[in-house]
């Protein structure tokens, strides 16, 4: 399969160039540890007043936090760098190169960049998640582990689709950077289960920016019980978002004029 090979070559090339900036590894390590520390402090503050938060116990919330860090790491490794590059390319006109290649342009622009040092979050998040699970009374079966992996994958694809649509906005407004900052601050809200939020915010986090599906649902499949119906719904929504974002991308391309020389 051509695109799998492309993916690997882009990954390889990114790793080569990332290794030239080893300092970034330590900067990232420090940043991730700091974020984790503040998150844990906030959580212990909450639980010094109450034993549960809108029906979520402390280990369950810890699991949500772990997933939040893992998914955040995946976003920062693959989705964010590629989308930033897309916006940059639209602004500077270098998208012309991607568009004149005999391969699917959407595939190319989606896998060009990898920030491998961001994978530190994947490790940290897994540690947090592992600890949370060990504190839970329920035992973990293969099925829920599989469901968890599927839920994370679906969540990642949904976020990718939404992010792509926001980035494609750059075809019209050029300065799409501001959009993405909104996304970032809303993602921070996903650190807590979306069910604790008031209705309007809960719906936004579920359907507009599918953080409920990307973070809360995977955590739920692990920490509580597998909800087949929700997972099925996630599959449907993922397919819908992928199709819509693809159509929007193609629509946007027709409006691409490219920065003139």
């Amino acid at each position: 399969m051509v695109y799998v090979r492309l993916f690997w070559i882009f990954l390889r090339v990114s790793v080569i160039s990332e290794f030239q900036y080893r300092v970034n590894f330590f900067v990232q390590l420090f940043q991730s540890a700091l974020a984790l520390g503040t998150g844990l402090v906030a959580m212990s503050l909450v639980f010094s007043y109450t034993q549960n938060l809108a029906g979520w116990t402390q280990p369950e919330l810890l699991a949500v936090m772990g997933v939040h860090i893992i998914v955040g790491g995946l976003i920062k490794t693959i989705i964010q760098p590629n989308m930033n590059r897309l916006i940059e390319d639209i602004q500077e006109g270098t998208l012309d190169f991607a568009l004149t290649k005999p391969a699917d342009a959407q595939a190319i622009i989606s896998v060009r960049e990898f920030r491998i040092w961001q994978l530190i979050d994947l490790v940290l998040g897994s540690v947090v998640l592992g600890y949370a699970i060990s504190q839970l009374s329920t035992s973990l079966g293969w099925l829920s582990a599989l469901a968890f992996a599927a839920a994370v994958l679906l969540g990642g694809l949904m976020i990718y689709s939404v992010w792509l649509m926001l980035s494609v906005g750059a075809f019209w407004i050029i300065r799409a950077d501001n959009f993405l900052e909104i996304f970032d601050s809303l993602y921070q809200a996903g650190r807590w289960p979306v069910s604790i939020y008031p209705g309007w915010l809960k719906h936004t986090l579920t359907f507009v920016l599918p953080i409920a599906f990307a973070v809360t649902l995977p955590a739920e499949t692990l920490a509580r019980q597998l909800n087949g119906q929700n997972l099925l719904f996630a599959v449907g929504l993922t397919i819908l978002l992928l199709v819509v974002s693809r159509l929007f991308w193609r629509f946007g391309l027709r409006h691409y004029t490219g920065a003139s020389a």
Binding site: I9, V13, I16, S17, Q20, D96, P102, I108, A261
Partner: peptide
């Protein structure tokens, strides 16, 4: 697209941080 090419003096497509030789591999795959 397989039979045409575009070269722009003011814009580059080679990756900045790696040798051109590695970028060529990318072209081969595409």
């Amino acid at each position: 697209l397989r039979q045409i090419t575009i070269v722009m003096g003011q814009r580059n497509q080679l990756m900045w941080d790696i040798p051109a030789l590695d970028s060529f591999e990318l072209q081969r795959a595409i």
